[in-house]
Design a protein around this nucleic acid. Structure first.
Lengths: 259, 259
DNA sequence: GCCGAATAATACCAATAAAATACCAATAGC
DNA sequence: GCTATTGGTATTTTATTGGTATTATTCGGC
């Protein structure tokens, strides 16, 4: 079996890293399938064969194989053998979700940094009094920053919170949510509105684009478990340089595969 | 390992200030997460590893790590390791389902009507051939309509499908998905990109706004259970009259993540 | 100078995962 | 049917992980 030998060769190659054995093996098999060394319908060597040739326990082999079965890449039949699953698209692990700014940028291989535009306590605007439920005698904490990816300004984030939950805005580190969480004010729910707007002069200048260019505006209201509004954030993204990607899913795909 | 090393590098860098060790470390980890060096679900080096590499006590490391756990940035599992918490956004409502425009607006209590702009079979554009996987001899079905809510034009929807799944575009009624479902071609998964764009002359005229006004552009690719692309839709919404609402549930600190 | 809180270190406890061993159960081929 | 071969499972050992109690040190305010 040439294909099997190639798997073993790959395994040997990667066996220098300190990673767990079953992960190394899993990766080797996965690559063999991806490169087409073993195609859909082909049988893998038996678990015992792999185990003895690679000189590891069969349970370890099994752990690797079962991960791939769960991932839909392999199919096993009791008493028969292990086979490469018939073509079927890879089941995406991620459920419906919006990717966050930093996550998204990291995946695109960009380095992200932020510049503070504002951190301080102010008298609340009428809008802030409404949304955050403040009286005119209370103060509001405002935290604003410019998000920059690969030296290109990408977004402006302006958050408003009650001063009672963030008495010292200057102390906020790189993550606002971390600062909130550490004082026991972690939001558990949020409602987000995504719309489009033409950038005004000030925002356009910060984002280094001509005024009037289209921007993605996101308004988010975060709630505590008690239902109280804790934060209101309005962000503007450069429309020409950023887009939101959302993956949607309706139903679970069927699992049964019987030849 | 590279990510871990970068954390240590950052730690070293900031180690000149007189601040407490655990604060310096906390900031380093926070930044590493924040700029995506280690993403959600990734494991941190073990507390002992960090301690020995940074040449500080493990309890000090622990103090820093636990602060971030309390802040919801990290998640720890006894006997297993410390992991970056899954990013907070999880789509609950409108974005998590493939809702049709009609459903969406009905929920907001608006009466909706549509005007057909186009229904026909065409030779595919290069973009359509790529996305839908068509050969140049096959035909593409295009369905375009202007969506009007309460007598205000709100959106332009242009859908492209392989003619093999929609041989008679003229027969499409008020719902494209209904037509697809009846021939057993119901999409189960979609990837959606939301961006902002300045409306061109033609689209602006249709939407009855001046050219250059900001519009929400949504590109959606729908997949069958088999993984085959079935539909490609590009929609433009009036930025001043429509917005996407998404309800997000933020992750609980104790929530399961499995590497 | 004294006290207390924040900081840091030491030593030990507990949960989990990785891996191995031994055995059970289904299938294919005769 | 029987039998060799396949995947399936239960149990245990070991190393590694986070968790905790206890103690020493430093620093700031009185």
């Amino acid at each position: 079996m040439s294909a099997a030998d190639q798997i073993f060769a790959m395994l040997k190659e990667s066996s220098q890293s300190g990673a767990p054995l079953y992960l190394q093996l899993r990766k080797s098999i996965e690559e063999a399938v991806n490169r087409g060394l073993i195609g859909p319908g082909d049988a893998l060597p038996s678990e015992r064969d792999i185990a003895s040739k690679a000189d590891i326990s069969r349970v370890t082999v099994r752990k690797a194989v079962q991960d791939l079965v769960k991932g839909g890449i392999l199919v096993q039949r009791h008493g028969s053998g292990t086979f490469v699953a018939p073509r079927m698209e890879r089941v995406e692990q991620s459920l419906s979700r919006l990717t966050s700014f930093t996550e998204d940028m990291a995946r695109r291989g960009m380095t992200v940094r932020s510049v503070w535009l504002d951190r301080g306590l102010y008298a609340p605007s009428p809008e802030e009094m409404m949304v955050l439920g403040l009286s005119s005698t209370e103060l509001v904490a405002r935290v604003a920053r410019l998000r920059i990816a690969n030296d290109t300004p990408l977004a402006i984030e302006r958050a408003s919170l009650s001063a009672s939950v963030l008495p010292d805005p200057e102390a906020v580190g790189s993550s606002l949510y971390a600062a909130l969480g550490m004082t026991g004010n972690r939001p558990v729910r949020a409602v987000q509105r995504i719309s489009a707007t033409n950038l005004g002069d000030a925002d356009a200048r910060l984002l280094e684009v001509p005024p009037g260019v289209a921007g993605l505006q996101i308004e988010r209201i975060s709630y505590l478990a008690s239902g109280k509004v804790i934060e209101f954030t309005r962000s503007v993204y450069r429309g020409d340089a950023y887009d939101f990607v959302a993956e949607l899913r309706l139903t679970e795909p069927g699992e049964e595969i019987r030849p």
